[in-house]
């Protein structure tokens, strides 16, 4: 079991009002799985992803990643997990605008304390995997949306994490580019990466092994899919 959450709650306090973004979420995700999370806006998808990605800590409940309890970890331990175990892909790419592709991909390695030479090699390899080696010296504003997202994916891959999280990775892309990204995800998953992806788009969700539906901070239903979409038109 790669991920196991037990009765996960996240409560935001706004003034005197309490907002329960998550209300007792129980999840189990196996290594190598490809999971899509769907649900209406404001249902708590991003909140859940942030907890799974160790960007945030739950108000209540337990979260085990690789059998380790994350809910009790301190800031530094969480940072280490984010660095080594998790690759994040965001809807808005979240690249550093002043850095070129290679440097953006290098970033997680900097915080792992890896030396410059090795770092360059690893970053170049990751860029090659997303077919962007030729664009290594370009800054984000010189790239298309799809290319930017592929740089972000290379960055997520570079530290060889056990888990890749993507919060609406195709949200800012046109259909064709979105499908290209899905093709890439498919390949990564086939290669053994565990993927969790939030999406609004049922067509995109089709690519996953399993779809988890969230509503009002709770898991509404799950749907195992047998016939994966293999073919991208």
């Amino acid at each position: 079991m790669l991920i196991e959450t037990k009765n996960l709650w996240k409560t935001y306090i706004m003034g005197v009002q309490e907002l329960h973004a998550l209300k007792g979420v129980d999840l189990q995700i196996e290594k190598g799985e490809y999971v899509a999370i769907m649900g209406p806006s404001g249902s708590g998808k991003s909140t859940l992803m942030n907890l799974i990605g160790c960007l945030d800590t739950p108000t209540q409940g337990d979260y085990y990643l690789n059998g380790e309890s994350v809910s009790t970890m301190n800031d530094n331990e969480l940072a280490k997990i984010r660095n080594k175990e998790i690759g994040f892909v965001f809807q808005t790419f979240n690249l550093l605008p002043r850095a070129n592709s290679l440097h953006n991909v290098e970033l997680p390695l900097i915080y792992s304390g890896i030396d410059t030479g090795t770092r360059r090699e690893m970053a170049a390899k990751a860029l090659k995997e997303v077919d962007l080696l030729d664009w290594a010296g370009h800054k984000p504003n010189e790239l298309s949306g799809g290319q930017r997202q592929r740089v972000a994916i290379a960055r997520a891959l570079v530290n060889e994490p056990s888990l890749i999280l993507a919060d609406e990775p195709t949200g800012n892309l046109d259909t064709k580019t979105g499908l290209e990204i899905m093709k890439l995800f498919r390949r990564l998953n086939d290669r053994g990466n565990t993927m969790i992806m939030v999406t609004h788009d049922p067509e995109i969700a089709e690519f996953a092994d399993r779809i988890i539906y969230i509503r009002d901070g709770e898991v509404e239903k799950e749907e195992k899919r047998s016939g994966k979409v293999q073919d991208v038109h």
Partner: peptide, 16 residues
């Protein structure tokens, strides 16, 4: 601020 958030999401510690 955004840059700090990105760096932290990629594993930068407070100290960094």
């Amino acid at each position: 601020t955004r840059e700090i958030g990105i760096r932290k999401s990629l594993g930068a510690r407070k100290r960094h």
